[in-house]
């Protein structure tokens, strides 16, 4: 067997998997901008203790509704102004970022884990079980998602934790459908058959053979539902069903300040802007991830 020599010697020069991923990802300029923005936001949230000039809940009664520094009446003590209770907006936004990212993370983890498990089961299960699971998911999907989350929170009682659970439940069917479709697509492939011929039992087939090959679309979905989760939590917070005051959560901040919208634009605009930038950057990044991970879109 001398015939393998040339081929082997040159194989390592091919760009690695990560390099290839990066190449596809970086082709999408929006995705790169999104990634940097998101990275900076995460860094800011992590360093909130160091950067924030004040505590998020400390009230400066003598400086309520102070405008940002560049407006008349602003001061460097409160760079982005204060809210109606005299709390520093910048500090609240920074600490709020923590909540938002935490919420996004937890919701995605819960929804993805549950969704992937159910999707795998549905993909491998006999037809009746598959039908039961999928119809259940259809029922969840047929409700307007925010309404369903509202109902769930109303039943469980308003708190940030319950809001996260409710949003996870609402987002889960997307994962189930996605995983099931990918599993059914992969299940008939030759490599799965050869694993079966090798004697692989169902759990091994599910988790070791098939699941890693279904992950690409799920990762994209995770990135996109991360922003969904942040939005939904903000919406629930705005409706008073999420994080409770004085938690510096962005949606709750919006809700608390909405009566002052005419007098003090910054109390409403700044949290709104924070939500917008975060969601936008994550969505841009998700687009890039799809370009890089979805083999169907891959160009040779």
């Amino acid at each position: 067997m001398t015939d393998m020599t040339e081929a082997a010697a040159t194989a390592p020069k091919r760009p690695g998997r990560l390099a290839e991923f990066w190449q596809y990802f970086s082709e999408n300029r929006g995705a790169v901008i999104g990634m940097w923005t998101f990275g900076i936001l995460v860094l800011l949230a992590l360093l909130a203790d160091v950067i924030a000039p004040h505590s998020a809940t400390e009230q400066f009664r003598e400086a309520t509704l102070q405008p940002p520094v560049w407006q008349e009446g602003g001061s460097w003590t409160f760079p982005l102004g204060t809210d109606p209770l005299g709390r520093d907006m910048l500090s609240r936004l920074l600490y709020g970022a923590r909540f938002s990212f935490f919420v996004g993370m937890v919701v995605v983890v819960i929804a993805a884990t549950g969704g992937i498990l159910l999707g795998l089961v549905a993909g491998f299960a006999p037809k009746w079980l598959d039908t039961v699971i999928m119809r259940l998911m259809d029922i969840i999907l047929s409700f307007p998602s925010l309404l369903l989350a509202l109902v769930l929170v109303a039943i469980l009682g308003p708190s940030l934790l319950n809001a996260m659970i409710a949003i996870s439940v609402v987002l889960q069917p997307h994962y189930v459908r996605l995983t099931r479709a990918a599993v059914i697509n992969e299940r008939t492939r030759d490599y799965v058959v050869s694993a079966r011929v090798a004697g692989a039992k169902l759990p091994r087939l599910m988790f070791i053979t098939v699941l890693p090959n279904c992950l690409a679309p799920i990762i994209v979905q995770a990135a996109l539902s991360f922003s969904n989760a942040i939005l939904d939590v903000a919406a629930l917070g705005f409706l008073g069903m999420g994080a409770q005051p004085p938690t510096p959560e962005w949606g709750t901040m919006l809700a608390e300040a909405r009566e002052f919208i005419l007098r003090a634009w910054w109390v409403v605009t700044l949290p709104g802007l924070a939500i917008l930038i975060t969601v936008l950057s994550i969505n841009l990044m998700g687009d890039g991830l799809r370009d890089a991970l979805d083999p169907k879109l891959k160009r040779s």
Binding site: T2, D3, M4, T5, E6, A7, T10, K13, R14
Partner: peptide, 22 residues
Amino acid sequence: PTIPGVVPGQFDRPQGCLFSPR
């Protein structure tokens, strides 16, 4: 009778004749 090796790809084009390694 076989032809040893494989068709050169993007990263292993030989100098000279492309068929020379095989």
